[in-house]
Write a protein that binds this DNA or RNA. Structure first.
Length: 250
DNA sequence: TCGAACACACC
DNA sequence: AATCTTGCGC
DNA sequence: GGTGTGTGCAAGCGCAAGATT
């Protein structure tokens, strides 16, 4: 969301009150909870969980739940990532939910490698949970467009972090391991993006990237009834994405 | 990150 | 306490 | 002169922290 405090000023809570999702996952909160008021922490009726980076004003994720999760974990359990406040795991009745702000690799080779390591280290963890009979959803800002259809300028960005072959190969590996990009189940069409540069009026011209996903394990994909991108919602350089799941109880 | 503005090929 | 400047990270 | 590639450089926002008032 490029700063929760900024998007609250721009109407996040009105939008939340209108949409009332069962669960809301946000990334790049850029705030510690002691910097936030009760209007965003709790007054809306959701239980909220926060994982913030050590560095003030940087990174951070939050998960809002109508129903209290069975279990909440801050971080992946790997120190070098957890210092940056990138992961919230919540357990729900029918699935585990990872809310993740994947690293950005554009600053230098060190950060690119850090990003690639994150992909490599996350995969065995979630694979193991599926093997243990859990359904798993991994959502958030993945910071990588997988295929040329997923960004407006594929040829121009082959050497830009976010669409480099090494990064795309990591997503290939997720797919090879049975993980499903749910948006494409329902939307084969091009020109559907979830992020646009603030600069150069990129959003007005839809020069964007699809870098936000809901990946789910293969068998759970059958329970997904819709996935979408809501590019009419303003307030950030990203727009919301959604996943709808079959309701088995009631 | 995008694309205007250049440089420099190469016929 | 409010405003400005610089710097960082997208 | 036209077309095609390749490279440096400007480009919005949100936030922190220090300086100035």
């Amino acid at each position: 969301v490029n700063g929760v405090r900024a998007v609250v000023k721009k109407g996040l809570l009105d939008w939340l009150d209108h949409e009332r999702p069962d669960i809301l996952c946000i990334q790049e909160t850029k705030a510690h909870t002691d910097q936030l008021s009760s209007e965003i922490l709790q007054d809306h009726g959701y239980k909220t969980y926060w994982h913030s980076g050590e560095r003030r004003g940087y990174s951070g994720v939050a998960t809002f739940c109508k129903e209290e999760p069975l279990y909440v974990q801050e971080g992946l359990g790997i120190e070098k990532y957890d210092r940056e406040g990138r992961v919230l795991l919540t357990e729900h009745e029918d699935f585990l939910l990872y809310n993740i702000y994947f690293p950005n690799g554009q600053k230098d080779d060190v950060r690119l490698q850090y990003k690639l390591d994150f992909y490599d280290d996350l995969l065995p963890i979630i694979n193991e949970q599926v093997e243990s009979d859990n359904n798993v959803i991994v959502t958030g800002d993945w910071n990588t467009a997988h295929f040329p259809i997923d960004l407006a300028r594929p040829k121009e960005n082959i050497r830009t972090s976010g669409f480099m072959p090494v990064e795309r190969e990591r997503l290939d590996t997720y797919v090879d391991n049975g993980w499903v990009d749910t948006f494409r189940l329902f939307h084969p069409e091009p020109h559907r993006y979830s992020w646009w540069s603030y600069r150069m009026g990129a959003r007005d011209r839809n020069i964007g990237w699809r870098i936000d996903y809901f990946f789910v394990n293969g068998s759970f994909a059958e329970s997904c009834i819709d996935a979408d991108i809501h590019d009419d919602v303003m307030g950030s350089d990203h727009c919301p994405i959604s996943l709808s799941i079959e309701n088995n109880s009631s």
